[in-house]
Design a protein around this nucleic acid. Structure first.
Lengths: 107, 107
DNA sequence: CTGGATCCTTGAGGATACTG
DNA sequence: CAGTATCCTCAAGGATCCAG
């Protein structure tokens, strides 16, 4: 846990930014939300050029925070699907607003 | 401009995350919004232990993005006040939701 | 009081190759 | 296909001192 998280655990704004921190998390959440359910490789393709290491690390953190769910099917070749958890879905209003804000300001 | 910004300028979500990127920007915006108008030193105190270099760099970027306004009074000692611009105020719904989300999940 | 200037650290993120 | 394993870079961020 970083100083950032430790020192400001009492401020809701810090809490939110800690839960979804890093360069990619909001975008990953958005892509998963958009797709509903999405496979690892598809996600990777949409975020390209993200490194596998980066993507899998962020996914793990999001999973550890209970914001996304990882479903693994023991097939050959393997299949893994990601989706938002109930908890993760509580972020949808924020995701929607962020997306809309970008739309309106990006011209 | 980073690869992040360059490669994804077509996706609204990337646009938003680029406009308010970095570890501190959302929190700085929140603190300014909370205060309405706030002096440099007050802001620095609320974010402590943030480095002066970091704070002033982030403030400059936010100013360059037209999200905050910097008003300088030529007094001795100097006084500088920051506030949200019209543009910056369009982020308030997002800030409010982020704050609320933190409140509800931080127990 | 509001930063700028310097120097420095560190860890997030990336490139590439490899594996069950 | 869905990731690890390695190694590496670089720039955000920090500590400290200085200045108008």
């Amino acid at each position: 846990m970083s100083d950032f998280k430790r020192n400001y655990s009492s401020c809701p704004m810090y809490y939110t930014m800690s839960a979804v921190e890093g360069k990619w998390k909001w975008i990953i959440l958005w892509k998963i939300y958009e797709a509903g359910i999405i496979r690892y490789n598809k996600l990777w393709g949409e975020l390209n050029p993200i490194a596998h290491k980066t993507l899998s690390a962020q996914l793990k953190e999001l999973e550890a925070s209970s914001l996304i769910h990882r479903e693994q099917y023991n097939e050959v070749p393997p299949r893994v699907e990601y989706s938002l958890t109930e908890e993760g879905r509580t972020l949808i209003p924020i995701l929607e607003l962020m997306y809309q804000w970008g739309q309106e300001h990006m011209k």
